[in-house]
Amino acid sequence: MRILGMISGTSHDGIDVALVDFDLRDGVLDGRVGYTTSTPYSPELRARLVEALPPAETTLAEVCVLDTLIGQSFAEAAATAIEQAGPVDLIVSHGQTVFHWVEGAHAHGTLQLGQPAWIAERTGAPVLSDVRIRDITAGGHGAPLVSVLDALLLAGHQGSAAALNLGGIANMTVVRGPDGLVAYDIGPANALVDAVVSSGKLSERGFDEDGAIAASGRVDQRLLDVLLDEPYYLLPAPKSTGKELFHLAYVEEAIARAGHRPGDADLVATLTELTVRAVARDVLASGVDLLVVSGGGCRNPVIMKGLRDALPGVTVALSDDYGAPADDKEAIAFALIGWCTAHGLPGTVPAGTGARASRILGTLTPGAGPLVLPAPIADPPRSLTLGR
């Protein structure tokens, strides 16, 4: 079954796309990753999106406009993928998260924009969307949904392993055998650095490319101590967070508490070190011997060196080594969720999200013809292999 997975993550910089051809044989799901790409949002759309995100106030009119513009952007990205790689049986669109409603230790709702009907109309293919909310209705956090991919991908590891995704937010899945999984959002990965770099116009690309700014600065220990004293880090897993908490105003408040403002490069270095410290602390506490890293943050040599230095007893590898290109892993994960839903299988791991039980995910929008799904499968796959 050929499935196109699509997502714009918490860095809200564009749309990641992965086309995966799945085939189940003897309990092993084989995924051939045939096409991947990333399509940036137009500068105008990204600026409009940033202006509407928390803690900014917005209007329902602006939400409606963004829902359409993002949906049209996803539709164009999907159409381009199909033109270049051939037809697909299903498209899975995560859309763009604009608000993740968490109070205390509980998630109450989540909102992703990008109207799927635009994608179905443009491509003629059925579209699965709204993939997070069903888990939340079952008491989960709706995140990190990538844990269903991590559980299958790391199933063959003999020791204890963890998969770390460094997007806007850092999330981790710890796998200790078939029944020993836990997953949760650790805290900010690139979110705070991106906010500072964008607002200060420190880079034309809006992020710290290759960690160059961080490498040119020095860590401000006083500010770092303030940032590490964040109550969210003490909450037990599973837990989830987002830019509702970790945004530019959050940095400004931390600077005020620290009592002084470091220079731009020192500020970026300090926020980068925050990611390293928060992640390394949780990885060490998990007791894993293998850490498989993906997401944009794994292309930052300052973060990766910091993690390797802080985790001397842990093998730190990229998800590329396991068949999942580090920049495309989340899109692949949503393609996998689509395969599960199409076959009547849950797309969540309760221990990974905190839900009462696993649930079949998403809402289906028909394409140009009748909605036809494969025959249901009784037993989920035991493991997953990915390759080109």
Results as ranks from 00 to 15, higher is better:
3 I>G: 02
3 I>M: 07
4 L>D: 00
6 M>H: 10
7 I>E: 06
8 S>I: 03
9 G>C: 10
25 R>A: 15
25 R>L: 12
28 V>P: 03
30 D>I: 13
34 G>F: 07
35 Y>D: 02
36 T>R: 10
37 T>C: 13
37 T>M: 06
42 S>H: 08
43 P>Y: 01
46 R>P: 09
56 A>M: 10
66 L>P: 03
69 L>A: 12
76 E>W: 02
76 E>V: 14
78 A>Q: 08
80 T>S: 15
88 V>D: 00
91 I>G: 00
98 V>A: 06
99 F>G: 07
103 E>I: 12
121 E>N: 01
134 R>Y: 08
137 T>Y: 13
137 T>D: 04
139 G>A: 02
140 G>V: 00
141 H>I: 03
150 D>V: 09
157 H>A: 02
160 S>L: 10
160 S>D: 07
161 A>I: 09
161 A>R: 02
163 A>T: 02
164 L>M: 13
168 G>I: 01
178 P>W: 05
178 P>E: 08
180 G>R: 11
182 V>L: 13
190 N>V: 09
195 A>L: 09
205 R>S: 15
206 G>M: 02
208 D>P: 06
209 E>T: 13
211 G>A: 06
212 A>V: 14
213 I>K: 03
215 A>C: 04
217 G>P: 09
226 V>N: 08
226 V>K: 04
226 V>G: 06
227 L>N: 11
227 L>R: 15
228 L>A: 05
231 P>M: 14
233 Y>S: 14
235 L>V: 07
239 K>A: 06
240 S>Q: 09
242 G>R: 04
247 H>E: 13
249 A>K: 09
252 E>P: 00
257 R>K: 15
264 D>W: 01
265 A>H: 13
266 D>W: 12
270 T>H: 02
270 T>W: 10
273 E>G: 08
273 E>T: 11
274 L>H: 08
288 V>D: 11
289 D>W: 06
289 D>T: 15
301 P>C: 10
304 M>T: 06
308 R>W: 04
310 A>H: 08
311 L>E: 10
317 A>M: 03
319 S>P: 01
319 S>Y: 01
320 D>Q: 01
320 D>K: 01
321 D>M: 12
321 D>H: 08
324 A>Y: 07
329 K>E: 09
330 E>P: 05
330 E>D: 01
331 A>E: 09
332 I>D: 05
336 L>C: 05
344 G>I: 08
355 A>F: 03
359 R>G: 00
362 G>P: 05
366 P>W: 12
371 L>C: 11
374 P>A: 11
377 I>W: 04
377 I>S: 04
383 S>E: 14
383 S>V: 04
387 G>N: 07
